[in-house]
Amino acid sequence: MPMKESSSISSKREIKAPIVREDLDQAGENLHKILKESISDFPGSEISVSIDMVTVKIDSVQLAKICEFLKYTEKFGFDYLSCITVVDYEKDQEIFEMIYHLISIRLHHKMAIKVPLPSNDPTVPSVLGVWKSADWFEREAHDLFGIKFEGRENLPPLLLYEGFEGYPGRKSYPFHDYGEW
């Protein structure tokens, strides 16, 4: 497929400062407090709040460890992985950001884990062993963004057909290729 730069992508977006707005509910406040104490066990992790979501930024090597910790520790109890998102920041920061949204059905709180991956080698440990719901979400990320998952080699395509070339979720993939006719 001919790679053609789309006009909407090539125009440089100016980077603005993100908003700092905290709007945590009671459960979120509590989670933020206890998470702050426990997170020091994981070096290099950062905790922040984005509107109503407590967010932990962590290095990819520690992902499996923190996921197990969050699921099996009594006071966190994140028994449900809602979704896995990939955000493509290749153009500005040369990273892909993996975002795991976790929800505790038992304790009614939620959080997000962010894992930045270098765009030249986006490899991340699989969390399939922790939550089974990660299965198709990881395959989707592999299909659309070319993320590689440790321990899950040779993933067959899920949403795309066999033999599809390129990663259509990425910003660099040509999009609107047609003109007026």
Binding site: R13, I15, K16, I19, S50, T85, V87, H101, K110
Partner: peptide, 29 residues
């Protein structure tokens, strides 16, 4: 404004979530 938001709703089939990343422009990132 620049930022990201995750919203959960109950659709007839279950937990419908929307995750939105904005870069401050008129189109979502």
């Amino acid at each position: 404004p620049v930022g990201e938001v995750f919203v959960r709703t109950e659709s007839p089939r279950g937990d419908l979530g929307v995750f939105l990343v904005s870069d401050g422009s008129d189109k979502p990132y």
